[in-house]
């Protein structure tokens, strides 16, 4: 399968001189489920921000679906939907329905098309009955699903989730994980950053470890999981017992 995301020798240096990413090279195939893991400050979020042009490379290049992100960030944003770690900051609309409509409205679509997309995204995330509710009154899991719905309405090919399980209780984690898996089954490419492998690793087909802005290891999860703690990431309990990672949905 051809890569939908191609990153070549990507380096990002922040204004204060800190190196966020240091020579990253990575290709992600369409339809893959990739987990990017690493300790805080390892560069996971910075890497994700380059996928849809929220940050641009200091050097190197990022291509999404064959097009340079730097040359056309808007095109990249249509291809890569970003679900941020803090769902509250991502919510813009006064009601759930308004928030989901925000992206399609930005695309200048016809009102009928916007309504159609909003209905579909709400149905896909199980939020239809909450459509007129104020987003800030939703539970943590519902807010995260709303963030996913907002991205889905833009019909991206890649969904990039930054720490999607942070600050969620057990039911919230299950809701969000179930949602991510549905999207993957529907054909979306999934990129998830986390420092908590336990919740998602059973479903990933590729694991990337980052440290200090570099990719330290990249491969199938069973081959790499034993090295997790070397990169400041707790390995799943099952791995300690010599078992394969277990799904939180079972």
């Amino acid at each position: 399968m051809s890569p939908i995301i191609e990153i070549e020798n990507l380096t990002h240096r922040f204004a204060d001189g800190t190196v966020g990413l240091d020579g990253i090279t990575l290709a992600i195939e369409a339809g893959a489920f990739v987990v990017v893991a690493g300790a805080n400050g390892s560069g996971k979020t910075t890497l994700l921000y380059h996928l849809n042009g929220l940050l641009l490379p200091t050097s190197g290049r990022v291509r999404v679906a064959g097009a340079s992100v730097q040359a056309d960030p808007l095109r990249a944003r249509l291809q890569v939907g970003m679900v941020f770690q803090d769902a509250d900051s991502q919510i813009v609309g006064e009601t759930v329905r308004d928030d989901v409509a925000f992206g399609p409205e930005n695309l200048g679509l016809e009102r009928a098309e916007i309504d159609r997309r909003v209905q579909e995204a709400l149905a896909a995330t199980g939020l239809t009955r909450l459509a007129d509710k104020r987003p800030h009154l939703l539970s943590g899991g519902e807010k995260r699903r709303l963030a996913v719905a907002g991205v889905l309405a833009m019909r991206p090919r890649v969904i990039a989730c930054d720490e999607p399980f942070s600050n969620l209780d057990y039911p919230g984690v299950r809701q969000v994980l179930d949602q991510i898996l549905r999207l993957h089954r529907a054909g979306c490419t999934i990129v998830v950053t986390t420092h908590d492998l336990e919740k998602v690793l059973a479903h990933a087909d590729r694991l990337v470890f980052m440290r200090a802005g570099r990719i330290e290891a990249d491969g199938p999860p069973p081959a790499l999981i034993a090295r997790a703690e070397r990169y400041g990431v707790r390995s799943p309990r099952a791995a300690h017992l010599g078992m394969e990672a277990l799904s939180w949905l079972n």
Binding site: Y49, L74, R77, Q90, F102
Partner: peptide, 12 residues
């Protein structure tokens, strides 16, 4: 953070 999130959803 909000500005980033809006930009990510193609705000104009």
């Amino acid at each position: 953070r909000l500005a980033l999130a809006m930009e990510a959803r193609c705000y104009s």
